[in-house]
Computed example of a mutant assay.
Amino acid sequence: MQWGLPWPGAEQARAAEAAGAIAFCTGEFADVDAYVTSTEMALGSSSAAVGPGIAYAFARSPFVHASALRHLHRLAPERVFLGLGAGSFRMNRDWFGVDSSHAAPRMSELIRVIRAFLTAENGEPITFDGRFYSIDADVRAPVFGALDIPILIGAFNKYMVRTVGRDADGILGHGIFTDRWWSEAVAPELAFGAADSGRSVDDITRWGWVITAVDDDDPEAAIAAARRQIAFYLTVKTYDPLVELHGWQDEVAAIRRAFRESPTTIGDHVSDDMLWSIAICGDTAQASEMLGKRTDLPDVGFLSCPSFLVGRRARARFNDAAIGFAGDRLAAIG
């Protein structure tokens, strides 16, 4: 597994690149914009790939996605990627005020329209007549020229994973993805989608977030932080198929009860099986053992420190530790 980090800031990014990081990514929320942070990444790094991982797909038009990517490419030539996520139906409707129904076919069209804008040459009109997007753009200004920017999709359910196989360059896996989820749920659907469009599944990259909390001075605190992060993610019912695959229904029911009553205790209900299936945590020795037991990690793993109930200083320490761990351990196993 090659590795990167969610954007840690320019100072830690320089250390990460020196240790072998090949990519930085960013999510977004009500107070964080994926493209603004991607600009920070482009200006604060020198060799690693940079891009949203993920940007809310339907909150922006294809034109806006593509123009942002062209701008980023000028700042970081040949280093830009795009990671898109559909977001929930309620978030799209109530936060963004946009329609996200039929998310998988809508994402398929969005990818194709963004690519049309990115591959256009100067003087070439961009046209698209689809179910969700209708484009007739005759941009006379000399601002185009074909760009090869990889498009990855944050996908969980089988229909979106199939869309990756059909249309995208790669998948961005969630931090709760286990070896079994990658091999038993993701791989067959990627292959299904690829075959449907006459592509080789081997050409589809697999990137993903990996919950990572290493602390040689206080390994129990690192383990507790990883447990809380896993529990926080599993409060979302979207991930119930993964829970059912592993037989974790009782643990997750307890997590959700605790989340309503005492959120700080939710990590107490994350079993060792859950922890070892999802995270890399503890002191260097345990984290190395956990890494060694994983059999189906993503091709590029973003070592993501816990953020739920973790302060900024603690996240910075976790990032420093992840950089040191990855530079030593991941380089050794390739």
Rank of each mutant, 00 (worst) to 15 (best):
L5R: 12
P6C: 14
R14V: 06
A19S: 12
I22K: 11
F29W: 12
A30E: 08
A34I: 10
Y35K: 08
T39H: 09
V50C: 15
P52R: 10
G53R: 05
A59N: 09
F63T: 12
H65D: 11
A66C: 15
A66P: 15
L69I: 13
L69G: 12
L72C: 14
H73Q: 11
L75C: 09
L75K: 11
P77V: 04
R79C: 08
R79V: 08
F81S: 10
F81K: 06
F89T: 12
F89A: 14
R93G: 06
D94H: 10
D94P: 02
W95T: 13
W95Y: 10
W95H: 10
F96N: 14
F96I: 07
S101A: 09
P105F: 04
R106M: 07
R106T: 05
S108C: 03
I111N: 14
T119Q: 13
T119K: 06
E121T: 06
P125Q: 07
G130D: 11
R131C: 08
D136F: 01
D136Q: 06
A137G: 02
P142K: 00
P142R: 01
F144I: 00
G145P: 04
A146Q: 12
A146E: 15
L147D: 13
D148H: 09
I149C: 08
I149H: 06
I151P: 12
L152M: 05
A155R: 11
N157W: 00
K158G: 12
G165N: 06
R166C: 03
D167Q: 10
D169Y: 05
L172K: 03
G173N: 08
H174G: 01
I176K: 05
D179K: 08
R180G: 01
W182P: 04
E184F: 08
A185G: 08
V186P: 14
A195Y: 03
A195F: 04
T205I: 01
R206G: 00
D217I: 00
A222Y: 00
I223S: 03
A224D: 10
R227W: 00
Q229E: 11
I230Y: 11
F232P: 02
V236C: 07
T238D: 13
Y239S: 11
P241N: 14
L242A: 15
L245G: 05
G247Q: 12
D250Y: 01
D250A: 15
D250W: 00
A253L: 02
R257H: 09
I266T: 11
G267K: 05
D268Y: 02
H269K: 04
D273M: 01
M274E: 07
L275T: 07
D283S: 03
A285L: 03
L291P: 02
L291D: 05
G292K: 07
R294H: 15
D296Q: 10
L297M: 15
P298D: 06
P298R: 02
F302Y: 14
P306N: 07
R315M: 13
R315L: 02
F318T: 05
F318S: 07
D320M: 04
L330S: 07
A331K: 06
I333E: 09
